[in-house]
């Protein structure tokens, strides 16, 4: 019963993350939407993993997803910083020419 609640919460979080990625124009808020979607996927993996207490494959996968998400956030923010230095804005729709 609790597991199905958690699965529905994960589906809702994923949808909201998708909406954030599409709606927002600020690059860092788009990154936050990506983090939301990653969290929703993690929630699914963990929810199913509690029925597998011997190998915990879902939780191991979640651990590696956490690591990759941290690396992704660091590199993405460095890129956003360079974009800001170059264009003086991080609103994604205003970053539209190759040679500024």
């Amino acid at each position: 019963m609790e597991t199905s609640t958690i699965l529905i919460v994960a589906a809702l979080l994923f949808s909201i993350g998708l909406a954030v990625v599409v709606v927002k124009r600020h690059a860092i808020v788009v990154l936050m939407g990506v983090e939301l979607m990653l969290n929703a996927a993690n929630l699914n993996l963990v929810a199913f993993s509690q029925y597998d207490p011997d190998r915990l494959q879902g939780q191991m996968m979640t651990l590696f997803v956490l690591v990759v998400a941290a690396a992704e956030a660091a590199v993405a923010l460095a890129i956003v910083l360079q974009v800001y230095r170059h264009y003086r804005t991080v609103q994604l729709d205003e970053v539209n020419d190759l040679n500024n």
């Binding site: 609790e2 597991t3 958690i6 919460v9 979080l13 983090e35 969290n39 993690n42 929630l43 963990v46 929810a47 993993s49 509690q50 939780q59 979640t62 651990l63 956490l66 690591v67 998400a69 941290a70 956030a73």
Partner: peptide, 25 residues
């Protein structure tokens, strides 16, 4: 989400989530 991790008996991951996401990302 970290609290939901605890409730799905993933205590280590909940702590890791708080440390990596809240403390890092």
């Amino acid at each position: 989400v970290a609290a939901l991790f605890v409730l799905s008996s993933a205590d280590f991951l909940a702590v890791a989530q708080i440390m990596i996401y809240v403390g890092g990302v």
